[in-house]
Nucleic acid binder design. Structure first.
Lengths: 186, 186
DNA sequence: GTCTATAGAGTGATAGAC
DNA sequence: GTCTATCACTCTATAGAC
């Protein structure tokens, strides 16, 4: 008896975790089926394009989350320094202190799947620009803000890699704390 | 007519590139066969343990390269500031200005393959310690050196992710230049 | 004859597509 | 749940160096 009522939106978070944990290639349909509790039929009903379709849907959801929770405040908050500190806090929570990997970053390293490239680029471009805007408003000097934004994003991504590699849950929060000091003082 | 004489060491660089470009899961044996020009017989002759064996061999070669070219000078060069600058230069060249990905970092993000974990951790631990040592000798203060080494490695790894994501070959060299300024002045 | 490097047909299992 | 392609891997059979 089918019809347990699932919605596309309900399974996106699960899909995201599976892709994060196993990568795109490593996330097999049977694994996805097991984790979502859905048969292949349902999966192809929700995502006619198969696995790539699923990954694109997950990326779209991630983009939307970051756009409203991170990029928008960075661009619009009157208190730019606070927006930057909030970003670092949100990032620490989102990536569960480094226990959770950045799916967009992980896909960037393993491309060869060109379909994801524009979304991956868009995510990091939007983040860089939003942070640059906040840095300028926080008094960082328009000339230096761009480079600092770029370096900050690199450090966040790399901190996820390093924390994971060293199996040390203290690494990610520690590096974020250093970033905070440098960007907004304290 | 067999016997064209290949050696294990000769195909390691090719294997490294295939794993870098496609990831561990994405590097199929047929792809590996095509890229190395070797049949399965030869591949399994050199690497009886199959794909994992190949990846371990590549990681071992990478470790050795970094140990002699990067870690040793960092620990031993009497001129520590020069050793750090040399490290940044070597890294820029090794990763081909960001066009080439760090296999160790990429594997760290996609683990679930626990066999690689100790090697991955060893690589980053050795790098962190060597850089910390050089920073201390360059006058960075023992208390701060550790954190700076950690953050530097994260920034390098993240710069690879970001450069790749943005498809901008200028990103990686630009971030390395900022690192150099901060670490050894200029 | 033995050892090393080779090729590739053939194995069962499992992948993703539908 | 059925399909076909492809997966990692095994095995037998080679040729040439010693």
């Amino acid at each position: 008896m089918p019809k347990t009522v699932a919605e596309r939106a309900d399974i996106l978070p699960v899909l995201g975790e599976v892709f994060r944990e196993h990568g795109f290639e490593g996330a097999s349909l049977s694994l996805i089926g097991a984790r979502t509790g859905l048969g292949k039929g349902s999966l192809y009903h929700f995502f006619p394009g198969g696995k790539e379709d699923m990954a694109v849907a997950v990326l779209t959801e991630i983009e939307a989350w970051f756009a409203t929770r991170i990029f928008k405040p960075l661009r619009e908050d009157a208190n730019a320094a606070r927006a930057i500190a909030d970003m670092l806090r949100a990032v620490e929570e989102y990536f569960k202190s480094g226990q959770r990997v950045c799916l967009v970053g992980a896909l960037a390293l393993n491309d060869s799947r060109d379909q994801f490239a524009p979304r991956i680029r868009g995510y990091f471009a939007a983040w860089t620009e939003a942070l640059e805007s906040a840095l300028i408003r926080a008094g960082h000097g328009p000339k230096k803000a761009r480079g600092r934004a770029e370096e900050t994003l690199a450090t966040i991504q790399g901190a996820l890699v390093l924390g994971r590699a060293l199996h040390d849950p203290a690494v990610f929060p520690r590096i974020l704390a250093r970033l905070k000091k440098r960007l907004v003082g304290d």
